[in-house]
């Protein structure tokens, strides 16, 4: 068959699924600029980045789980628990509360990974269950209430809300995390092996890759970054709560998929998640701008996620969709 333009070929190309979101992002920015000239100033852009930071950090973590062909549904619970731990411990421990809160995420992420791999439980079940355990723990520790970070504690969180050389610290934090994750995914053994496992686990295993270890590391990273996101969120809101990150699971996964990482694994990466997170963030701001009720946000993200998966899924790769 002679097509005038090889649409199929272009769409099947590896880079296409990464380029389309970028085009979409630029188009969204242009629309905003046309609708509200002068919107794209340094100040608003830095605000946009700051507002995207938490979502991006969460989404970066879950990117690794998705690249492997799995999913991490525990991230919002882990982030919330980290916020509770931070708020609880700040008054007594000061800055030491930060690493402890983040370690809790690492621990539960590792736990999810081990359950998934060693007990051979599908990752969505393993992380759903871990998420339940973590939420229960957070509710118990906090007595089911939000914990305000008081004046004494706020001294230790102020740095997160500060700016360095005109850039909000949260933006710097997410930039550092984003770059580290990008390098890990693209240039390390772990990153390449994660992609190979997602693209074809039996062949990756047969080629001598330690699939179990790769998966556990990915889920550990996902848990740890979820906790980092929780800590940043707590510092920004000056509060820790067992439900603090409850509305963030859907947008985080949507950011990964909209950015161009395949839900089936093996294709995509952290750079794409950065683009996806910005798209989600802009859509959110746009909705506020247009006056969409804030409660309807997740309806939109749900629809966006379904659309993104339906459009991008490679049907030649999976015979049966469960």
């Amino acid at each position: 068959m002679n097509e005038p333009f090889p649409f199929r070929q272009v769409f099947e190309g590896k880079w296409t699924q990464g380029a389309i979101p970028l085009v979409l992002l630029v188009a969204l920015l242009l629309i905003i600029e046309i609708a509200a000239p002068g919107f794209l100033t340094g100040e608003t852009v830095s605000l946009l980045f700051a507002n995207t930071a938490v979502l991006f950090i969460l989404a970066t973590g879950v990117t690794f789980a998705i690249l492997l062909g799995g999913i991490d549904l525990s991230i919002q619970a882990v982030a919330s628990l980290a916020s509770v731990i931070l708020a609880q411990l700040l008054p007594s421990l000061g800055l030491a509360a930060f690493p402890l809160a983040i370690l809790s995420g690492l621990a539960f992420g590792t736990l999810s990974g081990i359950v998934h791999v060693k007990l051979r439980v599908p990752s969505f079940v393993a992380t759903l269950a871990t998420g339940g355990v973590v939420t229960g723990l957070a509710l118990w520790v906090s007595d089911g209430r939000a914990i305000t970070i008081e004046e004494a504690g706020r001294e230790n969180t102020a740095w997160i809300n500060a700016s360095v050389a005109g850039l909000p610290v949260v933006v710097l934090i997410s930039a550092v995390i984003g770059i580290a994750a990008f390098l890990a995914q693209r240039y390390t053994r772990f990153g390449r092996q994660a992609i190979a496992v997602g693209a074809g686990e039996p062949a990756a295993w047969a080629a001598g890759i330690n699939v179990d270890r790769t998966k556990i590391i990915a889920f550990a990273a996902s848990g740890m970054l979820a906790a980092v996101a929780g800590v940043v969120l707590a510092a920004r809101l000056s509060s820790g709560s067992p439900v603090l990150a409850n509305q963030l699971l859907l947008p985080a996964i949507a950011a990964v998929i909209v950015g161009g990482t395949a839900i089936t694994g093996g294709l995509g990466g952290v750079a794409r998640t950065a683009v996806g997170a910005l798209i989600i963030s802009i859509v959110r701001i746009g909705m506020t701008f247009v006056g969409v009720n804030i409660f309807l946000e997740n309806m939109v993200f749900g629809a966006v996620l379904i659309a993104a998966v339906a459009i991008t899924i490679d049907r030649s790769k999976i015979a049966v969709i469960k």
Binding site: P202, W205, A206, G208
Partner: peptide
């Protein structure tokens, strides 16, 4: 598992090339 075998210098060329031989999408 195949991992220690590969480290020992063993290479397995499987019958199921598309499943175990190559990561077809890479």
């Amino acid at each position: 598992s195949p991992e220690p075998a590969v480290r020992k210098g063993i290479g397995y060329v499987p019958r199921e090339r598309r499943l175990e031989g190559l990561v077809m999408f890479l």
